[in-house]
Amino acid sequence: MTEQENTHSPMIICRDVHKWYGHYHALRGITMQVRKGEVVVIFGPSGSGKSTFIRTINRLEEHQRGEIIVDGIPLTHDVRDIERIRMETGMVFQQFNLFPHLTVLENITLAPIWVRKWSRAQSEEVAMQLLKRVGIPDQARKYPGQLSGGQQQRVAIARALAMQPKIMLFDEPTSALDPEMIKEVLDVMIELAESGMTMLVVTHEMGFARAVADTMYFFDQGQIVESGPPNQIFGNPKEDRTKLFLSQILSH
């Protein structure tokens, strides 16, 4: 990402974030800064807390210790702050989570109309542009159940982008997809990364990481084991656990 303008203002600041599920210590002091326009890839073994972490950033999960500041807004119990942060962060889920009772177009325009209070006409115009951007303008009137997995995930990306977020969170966006559909979703994400969007991506698609990630974080047991730019992580990992994990996922 050399051509994009990095203003170096931190978009996300996490300091010593802890989270417990009952007695289980799921996040054990995560500290991370994400600059505007930075693309972060988070990877690590199952159960290491990747989803938990990314979901604390828009308060789908509540952290119990430490500090999270998103675009200058500290994440507290204040509902208005939480809603402001949610308006500025889009999220894409492994299982798409489209609304099955609404058409593709209605899925995308819902939040702009009801949260941003745009007019229907304006929202639909934006939605159609986004559908073009993700390559499926001809599916606008269909219902999610009538689309392939790859198409559904691209709708989900368009739905998140419709709120014009400053940050996009992706939690294993391609894990539920058949191999031939993974590429069409990754292409959209690569284009998004190149357009300068701040992105946090939990993924094991190492090709994607190599192509667009600025920083990679290796999670294990609720902690950041190692972080750095892709060429360092792939070429010269410092920690044995990182090496072992990479050798396992790169072998197939």
């Binding site: 809603e83 999220m91 889920f93 299982q95 609304f99 819902l110 009801w114 949260v115 709120m163």
Partner: peptide
């Protein structure tokens, strides 16, 4: 996932209930 998607989009509780 339906609740999570609605929340992530910034819908408040009432809108989430009525719309989703």
């Amino acid at each position: 996932g339906q609740y999570e998607a609605a929340r992530a989009l910034g819908l408040n509780t009432w809108k989430m209930m009525l719309l989703i």
